[in-house]
Nucleic acid binder design. Structure first.
Lengths: 331, 331
DNA sequence: CTGAAAGCGCTAACAT
DNA sequence: ATGTTAGCGCTTTCAG
């Protein structure tokens, strides 16, 4: 592989001049510039990004740390990040933590060692992990999930409001014993959506009943198991609010397997859309999130923080929208 | 951020010794090693991977270049890659080319500039792009798709056989006018699966009819449009074989929208599973691929090539399996 | 406007 | 077994 010195020699200039031409920085004599360009293309010269990164002590890589690459929510989000990143000249390293704090910590260590230009993270671990990035002055944006004890730019959706709307919709549909299948206690979205659900019940004068709440793992299997557990408990619900897309699928699968008609016996609303939701029978009512926009927004915030590291952190909340389909409409 | 010299000074040794301790390479006196470890942890020293990469002139990053991050086929494959990569000490940069040769070329350029340790690519461009990697002696594994003119390790599935089986199954179900919705002509899987379809027809003594073949884009919308075009053409098929998962979804959506009963009037078989296929009505018959294994295998091959760059290239073919569900069973 | 030279942080000969 | 030294390829003062 040709180096900058090979090009310099061939063009009859110094390496510094080649560097200037390649980076279009300083003003270089047109004649010399032309010679450099020719030499570079003749040698098929490609700047060594590693050397450049070392010298500049920064890279052109972003890490996006998500908790489940199998969840279309995250892939759609990543797409939004990528589109902005590419336009801004960054590449995206996608890291899948699988909801495992240890894996997450490994990826954070890698981002640190590789001197990544920035990190977008949907944390599944604790504040300390993310704070290592902040202490190292690596720009960070929290996406989808908050983390107490971490002060960073944040992009969220209106989780409580979305959950409240979904639950209210089930109440309107006549449900009175509404269960909630939510995620792990330490994940902010799980708790916020649970709170929205509780608030809707309260507003309707219905007492909260912890027998109707399950904490699962945000995965299909977890949703399935939680639904089974609800059915097997003495008090069968007449409506279910599941706080993410995969658990909604799991819950419905369980109901289908047991031959329980949805929505006739149990109505279901989920949080976050799934692809081809309209092909699924019954089609699923969900609180739709602007997934792509979530990623886009986070990426824009990260860009801005990179160019202006000292600005105050901010939080953006995007809006969800209830999409009523068959799984919650009786009659 | 502390450097290796800071640690050396604090531990009262040379930088070389610190390096040896950190990398566990040479044998270092236990006493010194202990001092180094203590100094390192006191200073919260983290090796600068960029400097290391420059010095060793290689990195610890793999690029995985896929054509559609929205397709669960690829995300599942990536998961397989990641699991192997992480165990082998590599991080994975996921690059989404969106089936666009220009984007793909940009990512290849980045892999080259960043001196990535290896690349796993499902090519949507031409051989020249991939050959740039090979010329630069970057280990490459082709996954899912072959590319004429590129000699590299390859992992595929038995595309023709799978397609033939799927088509034969439609013939067995009584279909006689079977259409094929396949992908772009320059993508090997599209052509191989088309060939398998044709072979099955021929074996049944049915003449190939190009009016029943459509080349779409491997996306949902493409499958929908192709199905619409087939219906609007004079000769309506009684069976459809779609050569990937998203186009199968699109085709079925079109049939549902037009009120055409599946499988009663038109039977459908797809290639590659979709998540929650059993919740979709009608549930979709598909040729299932070992997606995770595909990624795993590619990653293992890449590991091996990295450790042994001069070994002969090889090709692995994994097996598909027809899963018969409702969309192709009449009665 | 251009070149010489220093050095980013680390590793690997080489020397001791 | 440990230290000294010389770069990896690039950018960026600093001189000229």
């Amino acid at each position: 592989m040709a180096t900058i010195y090979d090009v310099a020699k061939r063009a009859g200039v110094s390496a510094a001049t080649v560097s200037r031409v390649v980076n279009g920085l300083a003003t270089v004599d047109a004649e010399l510039a032309a010679r450099v360009h020719r030499a570079a293309s003749e040698l098929d010269y490609r700047p060594n990004a590693v050397a450049r990164n070392l010298r500049r002590s920064k890279t052109t890589l972003w890490a996006v740390i998500i908790s489940d690459i199998g969840n279309p929510f995250f892939t759609s989000m990543v797409r939004g990040v990528e589109d902005v990143a590419q336009r801004a000249g960054f590449s995206v390293v996608l890291c899948n933590s699988d909801e495992d704090p240890a894996k997450e910590s490994t990826y954070v260590a890698a981002a640190l060692a590789e001197k990544m230009a920035g990190v977008i993270i949907s944390p599944s671990g604790n504040a300390a992990t993310v704070n290592r990035l902040i202490q190292a002055r690596i720009p960070v944006v929290l996406i989808d999930r908050e983390l107490p004890g971490v002060s960073a730019d944040t992009v969220l959706v209106d989780n409580e409001h979305g959950a409240e709307t979904a639950t209210a919709h089930l109440l309107d549909a006549g449900c009175r014993r509404i269960a909630c299948i939510t995620g792990p206690r330490k994940v902010s979205t799980a708790m916020r959506r649970l709170r929205g659900y509780q608030r809707a019940l309260k507003a309707h004068g219905i007492a909260a009943n912890t027998d109707l709440v399950r904490h699962a793992d945000f995965r299909e299997e977890g949703g399935y198991a939680a639904m089974a557990s609800l059915l097997d408990s003495g008090a069968r619900p007449d409506g279910v609010f599941a706080t993410n897309n995969l658990m909604t699928i799991g819950a419905v699968e369980c109901l289908v397997d047991r031959g329980i008609p949805v929505p006739a016996e149990i109505a279901v609303v989920g949080f976050d859309d799934i692809p081809w939701a309209h092909l699924v029978r019954p089609s699923l009512s969900t609180v739709a999130q602007p997934t792509y926009e979530l990623g886009r927004t986070a990426a824009l915030m990260l860009s801005e923080r990179i160019t202006e590291p000292s600005r105050a952190t901010s939080a953006v909340t995007l809006h969800t929208q209830l999409k009523v389909r068959d799984s919650s409409v009786r009659g």
